[in-house]
């Protein structure tokens, strides 16, 4: 199952002076249960793809399959609603979308939109807030009184409360401090281990190496590479020419290799590198 894109093209603001083509003939699959990363320079179309995955945008041409549902240019809102229940999309800076007067109400809002009773929605909200590390003392607070990192968690809990099978994260840790970033990445890892499919858009190659099992590389609206991170990051020069880069340790190992150190494959984590030094 999972998500499949077939021959997808997308043009934004069609028919306006701002019209522009963002995606060209994209074919790809996001496997069920995978942790799939998307990388690409600014303007490569990553965010546009994310918005296609949950039906926020519909393709101008081609089809997006989510499990057995197909989204095309002519899809009706009624059909797309089911897709939105399955695929939870966390935008960049999701805290800007908080609006309710209390944290609990904000998180319980989403599920009620999908026909869940108020009681059940609040039960879900409590559960998901606990999951993202927001303790009960905050439940009745105004979300705008929280710190940026806490607001981000509340917004993520709001998506989790809709119980999606697939969680799409568009640069979920952008703008957070290192501690907040690590805590969120750990949360997503746990969600993945519990069976959720995770789709991550990121600029942090170390995160791709540490967490993802598959990676898609985009450039100006086209898919140029895809595969396992350990394979993709062997292409150091190519990725650098695209201003994407590789994990720090991969670059470090490549520099040693250039000096004459024998390395068959470049490691993508620090642990792997130390292992190679030890056992050759």
């Amino acid at each position: 199952m999972g998500i499949t894109l077939e021959g997808v093209n997308y043009t934004y603001q069609k028919g306006t002076p701002f019209e522009g083509k963002a995606l060209f003939d994209i074919d790809l699959t996001i496997a069920d249960g995978s942790y799939t990363a998307f990388i690409g320079h600014t303007g490569s179309g990553k965010s546009t793809i994310m918005q296609l995955l949950n039906g926020l945008n519909v393709p101008t041409q081609g089809t997006v399959y989510v499990d057995d549902m197909a989204i095309t240019a002519g899809s009706k809102n009624k059909d797309i609603k089911l897709v939105r229940k399955k695929v939870g999309l966390v935008f960049q800076f999701p805290e800007s979308q908080l609006f309710e007067e209390t944290v609990l109400k904000d998180v319980a809002f989403g599920p009620q939109n999908f026909g869940v009773s108020k009681e059940r929605a609040e039960e879900l909200a409590r559960e998901k807030l606990a999951m993202v590390g927001i303790s009960e003392e905050f439940f009745d607070k105004n979300p705008f009184e929280l710190s940026g990192g806490q607001m981000r968690r509340v917004a993520i809990a709001g998506i989790l409360a809709m119980e999606p099978n697939i969680l799409v994260l568009d640069e979920p840790t952008a703008g957070l401090d290192p501690k907040g970033r690590r805590e969120l990445m750990t949360l997503f890892k746990e969600l993945h281990q519990s069976g959720m499919t995770i789709v991550l858009v990121t600029h942090l190659m170390d995160d791709v190496a540490d967490y993802a099992d598959y990676v898609n590389v985009l450039e100006t609206g086209k898919l140029i590479l895809s595969g396992k991170p350990s394979d993709i990051f062997q292409n150091v020069d190519l990725l650098e020419s695209k201003q994407l880069g590789v994990p720090k340790i991969t670059k470090f190992a490549q520099n040693l290799r250039k000096r004459g150190f024998q390395l068959e494959r470049l490691p993508i984590t620090t642990e792997e590198f130390v292992e190679v030094l030890k056992h050759g």
Binding site: H41, T42, Q92, F93, A174, G175, H203, L204, Q243, L244, G245
Partner: peptide, 8 residues
């Protein structure tokens, strides 16, 4: 510059 990618 918090929202920029590391290279940028």
């Amino acid at each position: 510059t918090s929202m920029l990618d590391p290279e940028g």
